[in-house]
Design a protein around this nucleic acid. Sequence first.
DNA 1: GCATGACTTGTACATTAGTACAAGATCTCG
DNA 2: CGAGATCTTGTACTAATGTACAAGTCATGC
Lengths: 182, 182
Amino acid sequence: MTGRRPQRPRDPEARRAALAAAVVEVVAEVGIGRTTHRAVAARAGLPLGATTYYFPTLDDLVAAGLTHATEALRTELDAWSARLRTAADPAAALAGMVAEYLADRRRARVEYELYVAAARDPALRPLAEAWLRGLCDVLAPHAGEAARDVAALVDGAVLQSLAMDTDLDQAALAAAIRRLMA
Amino acid sequence: MTGRRPQRPRDPEARRAALAAAVVEVVAEVGIGRTTHRAVAARAGLPLGATTYYFPTLDDLVAAGLTHATEALRTELDAWSARLRTAADPAAALAGMVAEYLADRRRARVEYELYVAAARDPALRPLAEAWLRGLCDVLAPHAGEAARDVAALVDGAVLQSLAMDTDLDQAALAAAIRRLMA
DNA sequence: GCATGACTTGTACATTAGTACAAGATCTCG
DNA sequence: CGAGATCTTGTACTAATGTACAAGTCATGC
């Protein structure tokens, strides 16, 4: 019947990217620990062999996905930085952006998967550090010494909101940020 | 050769507890997603069949372990509560206890595994809520309205410390807590 | 004593997993 | 054009996994 699928045009970079993006989706759905070659391949619409061709091992594949997610966040952080520069009320602006970030819960979960995985696997630590350092850098101009505290507060608030599946209390978060920055 | 292992004395409750405790160990090591019947059984020093005899499915087994961990934390929270009542400087006392809690990183990881898993699986949400509510209840007498903010700060600080594998900056945390409680 | 049920232990089985690889197809470059 | 590298696709193989279950052992109530 339907024989072998005709070959698609070659595009190695696109495949790498598609696989990395698929990893993010799968991780958001089932977590890092249950992410498999096959689930990623299916999500990317690619044959199983593509995963191992581009990434020698499953850990490499997952790491590529997490790197992809962290890079996306990096550009989002730049946007935060720009918006904070012109904000009349930085605390409120930050709380608002956190709420926006949290609106896509699937995506947000991935970053916390990464945090927890980094606690166990040193290889993932640089990725987690990149995100945290990026956040602190964004906060530093407005929070000064308190940047790390604000970062912890934000991470904790997001994590709790994700875990309980409750909406973020934006006003309360803004107020708390303000107190830390004072 | 060595035939069948002689039967050990019966003690269903002890087995349930041993399995739950073993789950906590395994989760701390490999994460919830990579926790298996066999790893738990090996850790508990029990045959594979014991896991499915006492817990119909793997999810039940893992849930029992997480419940076990959460209950242990519950009693630790009571101790926190008592110590806070007589503390001259509640913020410093709290930061100290958080640092102590974080000293056993293996154990601490499990709670954050739970958080992240609860974000995906509603069945685990009550467990995560129990921990968060317990923490807030402990904080409420000293932090009042700010209890939730302090809880978020603490959770964020612990998570970041776990992820980066860095020591908790106890003094900075105490100062931040103080600012939130003011 | 002995039958019934609860518990223990080992093993079996189907499924899914990671990874390797063969066979084409397409590209590059002389 | 043609050889060799690169890429695509499907399949194969072994190990590990969740779960079921048979067989044996112990307790408990008649």
